[in-house]
Design a protein around this nucleic acid. Structure first.
Lengths: 135, 135
DNA sequence: GTTATATTCAACCAAATGGTTTAGGGTTTG
DNA sequence: CAAACCCTAAACCATTTGGTTGAATATAAC
């Protein structure tokens, strides 16, 4: 249901460009301050000091967080006068969800068909996967 | 479709349990080795040595990665004999996508209606958001 | 031109991360 | 029992991270 020719099995341990970008995106989202900034920017663009204002930390710290987000291409900057206006870019967020749903969707599909197949059983934990362990 | 009363605006900088869990999930996914493990586990459960085999690193390193995934509740372990069988748990993955799509979905909706509103214009960059900068 | 404002850069620091090696605890197997 | 096997624990190391402070740069305002 996906590509089957373009994806080389690849020696695990070699890291593609795409992978490196996902690294940065997920890492950027792994910090509560940065997630709050993304949240905030989803409503409107903002300058650095505007974005820094709600947080109990130095402006420089927020500036660094913004640089992390920028490096992950989650935000773009627009320098206007002496201010730097940051805007959200949702592309990497969609890449991230695509990566995740590749696996969640698979399992929800499988489990849906599984449950509809024996539609009277009460499965107490239908999210942990046991399948065939180490064939 | 979700809670709307339970979410307090919260002093930014205070971190809820939910947030701390998202921290761990996103952090867990920010490493290519761990993502490869998740990928691998989405097909079948596996023992630690089975999971470690494709990687060019010590077993202990993989063991640590698994502990990170376990701490993020992305995997569960089932100790059988002297082996530890790891299985994927998709719940946190769904939490992560829910958090992300909260913002991507908003914008794709907005931009969809925007584009359908002036349905002849060619917008060259409809993913970077500029809106009202620092009202 | 001087001063205030907005932001970045650089140096520094403690703590966490990702890896290693060595040792140890259970569990099978001979 | 002894030896091999699977895995975790602990100590160690280099690098990164997330924060600080202080100086530097550039624009705006006076």
């Amino acid at each position: 249901m996906k590509d089957s020719t373009a994806e080389k099995p690849a020696n695990i341990g070699a890291e593609s460009r795409q992978d490196a970008h996902l690294d940065r995106v997920f890492h950027a989202l792994s910090d509560p301050t940065r997630r709050a900034i993304v949240q905030r920017l989803s409503q409107s663009s903002g300058t650095v000091s505007t974005l820094a204002e709600p947080f109990d930390m130095s402006l420089n710290a927020v500036s660094k967080h913004l640089k992390v987000l920028e490096h992950a291409k989650l935000i773009t900057r627009d320098i206007v006068g002496r201010t730097s206006v940051c805007s959200l870019n949702v592309d990497p967020l969609q890449n991230a969800t695509e990566w995740i749903t590749q696996y969640t969707q698979f399992w929800t599909d499988v489990l849906d068909s599984f449950e509809s197949h024996l539609d009277t059983d009460a499965s107490e934990n239908h999210t942990s996967i046991e399948k065939d362990a180490c064939s």
